[in-house]
Nucleic acid binder design. Structure first.
Lengths: 144, 144
DNA sequence: TTGACATCGTTGCAATTGCAACGATAGGGT
DNA sequence: ACCCTATCGTTGCAATTGCAACGATGTCAA
């Protein structure tokens, strides 16, 4: 037997935990709104800014740009977002929420908050340290 | 604009961070050993116990059992593991590392440690709290 | 014992994915 | 103005994936 404790191995723990959380949360909005995981990510990003390009999302999230492009197309077809050319740089497209999309996010946001609160409450006093650590790592692209 | 800060949203942060770490680490062993992410997970589990079933891995990791089954088949074909029937319950199979598989893990384990150390060092004093929180959540299936 | 039901690992198949390549556009440097 | 190179979003395509269904095996109560 090797001297290696998987249950203590950070990348493993992180992957399992994250997948569990994402899958669980995804079930929520898939069942209620028919939104996929990639679509949720795109919507969430759009709710943060007026106008966002595929590239903006791509560099911030670990999602292939084709995945984002396809999610955006589905969202556009469903009437949740609009795609238009960015006139100052015509290689870019501007994604933006429609009214319908905004309304959707207004429905989904409370679910997100509620879900997050449920997870955080389990951490009790450690919650703050945990969030701080996650953000510390997330913002430091040089490490991971 | 909605009152929702994605950059503070735990499931999102977790997913991005975890994907980044996994992808980065996966590049290491894929390039050097031609091992996929699922295969690494299976190998890592086998290095923890003498004999493990597909189900054992399935319940512990968020991996579809078909994915595990296929990874196991590839690993068997490559000579890293063996599959045999569990005689006490013939529905189960016993996966186990071969000598070649053990040797592989002996090569990969230091890489894993090294990688983990690099990530943890960025956390400094928060490392312990972070690990504790991750494990707290991981072990509590009722929350997530 | 038998029969109804649960669990295990595998597989077929459709859907999703990642990757590379593409056309269109932009930004220098000369 | 003209290359040369870089970047953007999309798409074709092969590979991977998730899901459901399956055969085989096990369990347990009638």
């Amino acid at each position: 037997m090797l001297d290696f404790d998987l249950s203590q191995f950070l990348p493993y723990q992180l992957a399992v935990l994250s997948e569990r959380v994402s899958k669980d949360f995804a079930t929520l909005y898939r069942e209620r709104f028919g939104i996929s995981r990639a679509e949720w990510r795109v919507l969430a990003h759009l709710s943060q800014a007026d106008s966002v390009s595929v590239r903006d999302i791509h560099v911030q999230v670990e999602l292939d740009k084709s995945k984002i492009s396809r999610a955006a197309s589905r969202l556009e077809a469903a009437g949740y977002i609009t795609k238009k050319l960015n006139e100052s740089d015509r290689r870019l497209i501007s994604l933006a929420l429609t009214e319908k999309g905004t309304a959707l996010m207004e429905e989904m946001t409370p679910l997100a908050r509620e879900y997050e609160a449920r997870v955080l409450s389990r951490l009790g006093d450690d919650a703050a340290a945990f969030l701080a650590a996650v953000q510390k790592l997330s913002q430091d692209r040089s490490v991971v």
